[in-house]
């Protein structure tokens, strides 16, 4: 899937959805057997092997089938190989090939870049120009740098110039159950606010944020930046409706609707975890559709539009 096709697929999900009682029968729908077309954009899946366990839906074809069964139309896929591999370009190339080969047209690869390793700018260029990726997914705690590293800002600038979105995985797994030889801290997002002040056009999404980004830091990110928050680890009973209304049990913020995006963290987490949140919370159709697809679609379109404008400006005499 190239970037043009990908954007087209994203925008197609803005068609009406059929999971509301009053939806017209002609609208797109998915079924339990995986046939039909879905409408959800899952912004947080990974391919290949989780380093510590064989996963139930670890094979790409099994994951795609599972996503389709649950009405996911498009999934933004990172690679578990990004966590520990050193040959980053190999990781990205395999990811792009796997999405092409087994993605059934619904997987969009998000390559990774490690800005503290040699020749990272070339990795970014290849993600953009050779593999046609619309964004990158960063795993700073695994790739061993913090967000106050000067190269992180450089990376953000260059990705933004290229019209690429940037996902930052705040964590991947509860640190209490890490393998004892794996010593990892969650990403400290505090430096991100200053960096985004200096790179205001950057399109940044935090994935798996809510276990660690809490209290004043969460409030500040909502108030001072335009980052999006992916929901797979938004927990707490009725978490979605309560964070939107400013009454969450332990996340002291009123989250604007346009800042939340659907993500499952599959295949490590069950896809059902993210989906049940829409049953547990009392949400309007407008709220569901914003989180399922519209916010992610707008996020991508904004990044791409900026990129097109820049390219156009550069090509003018």
């Amino acid at each position: 899937m190239n970037r043009r096709e990908f954007l087209k697929g994203t925008l197609a999900t803005t068609a009406g959805v059929a999971c509301f009682a009053h939806a017209a029968s002609t609208e797109g729908s998915a079924s339990r057997d995986g046939s039909g077309s879905g409408w959800i954009i899952d912004t947080n899946v990974e391919l290949f092997g989780w380093p510590h366990r064989e996963l139930k839906y670890g094979a790409t074809q099994a994951l795609v089938e599972k996503l389709q069964t649950h009405s996911v139309r498009q999934a933004w896929a990172g690679s578990y190989e990004a966590l520990f591999h050193k040959n980053i370009d190999g990781v990205n190339r395999r990811l792009a090939e796997e999405c092409q080969r087994n993605g059934r047209g619904m997987l969009a690869p998000l390559g990774t870049v490690n800005p503290v390793w040699p020749d990272w700018e070339e990795d970014l260029r290849r993600c953009d120009e050779d593999y046609g990726m619309h964004g990158i997914k960063l795993y700073p705690s695994y790739q061993n740098y913090t967000l106050d590293h000067p190269n992180f800002e450089k990376l953000l600038r260059q990705a933004t110039d290229r019209g690429m979105l940037v996902q930052v995985a705040v964590a991947m797994e509860d640190e209490r159950v890490h393998h004892p030889r794996t010593v990892l801290s969650a990403v400290d997002t505090q430096p991100l606010r200053d960096t985004l002040n200096r790179v205001p056009d950057a399109r940044v999404m935090l994935v798996n944020p809510f276990r660690h980004v809490r209290g004043n830091e969460l409030r500040a990110l909502v108030r001072e930046t335009n980052v999006l928050f992916e929901i797979s680890n938004l927990d707490g009973t009725g978490g979605l409706e309560r964070i939107l209304s400013g009454s969450h049990w332990y996340l002291p913020v009123t989250m604007p609707l346009e800042r939340l995006v659907f993500g499952s963290h599959a295949p490590l987490f069950p896809l059902e975890n993210a989906l049940f949140k829409f049953m547990e919370s009392e949400l309007s159709k407008v709220q569901c559709e914003a989180i399922w697809k519209e916010n992610a679609g707008r996020f991508l379109a904004t990044a791409s539009m900026k990129s097109d404008n820049r390219r156009q400006n550069r090509s003018q005499p």
Binding site: C19, F20, A30, H70, S71, L275, F276, M279, L283, K285
Partner: peptide, 12 residues
Amino acid sequence: MSEFDPTRVGLP
């Protein structure tokens, strides 16, 4: 009760 029909996304 929400209008959302969970069976349409493969939930019970």
